[in-house]
Design a protein around this nucleic acid. Structure first.
Length: 422
RNA sequence: GGAUAGUUGGCAGAGUGGUCGAAUGCACUAGUCUUGAAAACUAGCGUACCGCAAGGUACCGAGAGUUCGAAUCUCUCACUGUCCGCCA
């Protein structure tokens, strides 16, 4: 959520930058400013009524003490009148506050000025490409066929037991999956991230804290009885650890990592890009999260991108780095880089990581602040990135490393898998 | 699932209708004293919002109510602790 003071003071700039999202926010911003002004003036009236009523109540107490019954009764009458008036105003003020709140929830984060214009993922800007694109052999097959051939993943079993998008990993497939998780966690630890095992269900307040609610309500699995949500990413519990927290400037930066399964309804997505591991309702991911000083956050974003690129290099996967355009930028993000790996047999680039700077957008909802040396309080910046999302990594590893005699396991993973070939 | 107790400032912990935004202790900050430190002493020390300011308002788990006036009374809800049962 954007800070109301920022909107008051920089509305022209905000409207201008939101155009990068193909959004004409002028009317909405003006509405917010109007409602805010309305709220403030009514609030002021209410406050002075309350002040009057408080003073009167004290007076009545005194009058009773002095035994001036009649005067007290007279004052009581006036007090009642003031209270009636205040009640009416209270309703107005409450309504305006609610309206302001929901208007603010509807405004996405202001894009960083480097965000390119564009409508969809097709307009994302490639900033680099690395690694060697393998030459596809005549007999190469996509990962879902490899999975069947070598008994690595059983999609049909998933359908039987749960439903589409919930595969079973079997035998060496399961071990490879576990190896990847451990590899990613160890790398993150070496990079200074504190490992965490968070809950996989979160409450409503956490959903609001990181911005999944209210705008992505339908994307999360919801337990109605306990009013809990299955996490769509570890970002939610990890970042919400810092909800309502006042840090000291010296505490920054905070770096955490977690492996969790992620649950996504993916309502409305279908087609050829959901085959095999390409899009699942449950998948594994290692996430890195950082809480940073505002003047560090963009340098840190670059570091995070470089870190994840390093992981892909170690795995020997060809990848490219994209700067997301305004049309593809997440609701809460100011700037996002996506990393895509090339999956040879499908001849497709698959998104395996999304690394974002949310600036103060999440911190404002979270009330995540730090106190500077001068005792001034500021909102912190939050960032996160996938490091990495497993299924598509698995898909690319299987497809790119297939040979006529089996699938080769990257060297860095062998200590984790205990085998070098499938 | 059953029973019971609780939820007050960073922490501990008073406070059962008016001068309580809230005692006291600890912690913290500044100062005095000291060669330095400790101790002692003195003073300060919650958060948010509105306002140029003076100042005002709100907050004692959340919400609603009674009252001229609520941390204090009433109702609803949430959460936490403890004991019993069940269970990985």
């Amino acid at each position: 959520m954007l800070e109301i003071t920022r909107i008051r003071e920089n509305k022209t700039e905000i409207i201008e930058l939101l155009k990068l999202r193909n959004m004409d926010a002028a009317a909405q911003i003006e509405k917010i400013i109007a409602v805010d002004a309305d709220w403030r003036s009514n609030k002021q009236k209410q406050d002075s009524l309350l002040a009057e009523s408080n003073a009167l109540a004290k007076e009545i107490g005194q009058l009773f003490k002095l035994g001036k019954r009649e005067e007290a009764e007279e004052a009581k009458k006036r007090g009642g009148e003031i209270r009636d008036e205040e009640k009416k105003l209270d309703e107005v003020v409450g309504k305006l506050a609610d309206e302001l709140q929901s208007l603010l929830y509807e405004i996405p984060n202001v894009p960083h000025s480097s965000v390119p214009l564009g409508n969809s993922d097709e307009d994302n800007v490639k900033i680099s490409e690395a690694g060697e694109i393998p030459t596809v052999g005549a007999d190469w097959i996509p990962h879902w066929e490899l999975a069947k051939k070598y008994d690595l993943i059983d999609f049909d079993m998933g359908v039987k037991v749960t439903g589409a998008g919930f595969p079973f990993y079997m035998g060496k497939g399961a071990r490879l999956q576990r190896a990847l998780i451990n590899f990613f966690l160890d790398e993150a630890r070496d990079a200074g991230y504190k490992e965490v095992i968070p809950p996989f269900l979160v409450n409503e307040a956490s959903g609001y804290g990181t911005g999944q609610l209210p705008d992505k309500e339908g994307q999360m699995y919801h337990d109605a009885q306990g009013d809990l949500y299955l996490i769509p990413t570890a970002e939610v519990p990890l970042t919400n650890m810092y909800r309502n927290v006042m840090l000291a400037e010296a505490d920054l930066p905070l770096k955490t990592t977690a492996y969790t399964p992620c649950f996504r309804r993916e309502a409305g997505s279908y087609g050829s890009d959901v085959r095999g591991l390409n899009r699942l309702h449950q998948f594994d991911k290692v996430e890195i999260v950082r809480v940073e000083h505002p003047n560090q956050s963009y340098a840190v974003l670059d570091q995070m991108v470089a870190y994840v690129q390093g992981l892909l290099t170690k795995l020997g996967l060809p990848y490219r780095t994209l700067r997301l355009c305004g049309g593809d930028l997440g609701f809460t993000s100011a700037l996002t880089f996506d990393l895509e790996v090339y999956s040879a047999a499908q001849d497709k680039w698959l998104e395996v990581s999304s690394i974002s700077n949310f600036e103060t957008y999440q911190a404002n909802r979270l009330k995540l602040r730090f106190k500077g040396a001068d005792k001034k309080k500021s909102l912190a910046h939050t960032l996160n990135g996938s490091a990495l999302a497993l299924p598509r990594i698995m898909a690319a590893l299987l497809e790119n490393n297939q040979t006529s005699t089996g699938i080769n396991i990257p060297e860095v993973l062998v200590p984790y898998t205990g085998f070098d070939k499938i």
